[in-house]
Amino acid sequence: MASIIVDISDLKVSSNPEDTLVTYSLGSCLGATFYDPVQQIGGMIHCMLPLSKIDTAKAEKNPAMFVDTGIPKLLKTMFDLGCRKKDIIVRVAGTARVLDHKGLFKIGERNYTVFRRILWKNEMMIAAEDVGGNISRTLRLEIASGRLTVKSGGIEREL
């Protein structure tokens, strides 16, 4: 079984049932997985920031850095492989925040809000989520089964 690492500001899609997509230490970053059980195709993204207007040149080069450019890119990649919107199971994790009374580091919450807005525009729903709080999370998506686990503080659970 091959682990395919999804780095920070990165997205990966696989149709190989041997593969597991993995992303480590999601802090305020957003980790989303799209899984199509009909085609047995899964995608994972690790977005750092909510909106690409911060740096459009960077977004052009690396759309996965931002939620508003990364999620459409991931969706398109899966559609191009023959996935259909109605089959895709959407799960999301991360978007935590550091202890911050001023609310300056609301990057996580903003990531989540932008994600919801994009799904809403695409008429898609979140099937499961593990978001917020002040913990760091690791995500694993098995392509064969679509099983998704979230690990934080040494405890792994299925999402």
């Binding site: 802090g27 750092m48 760091s136």
Partner: peptide
């Protein structure tokens, strides 16, 4: 830390 780099 917020971006999850070396969070531990």
């Amino acid at each position: 830390y917020s971006e999850g780099v070396g969070c531990g």
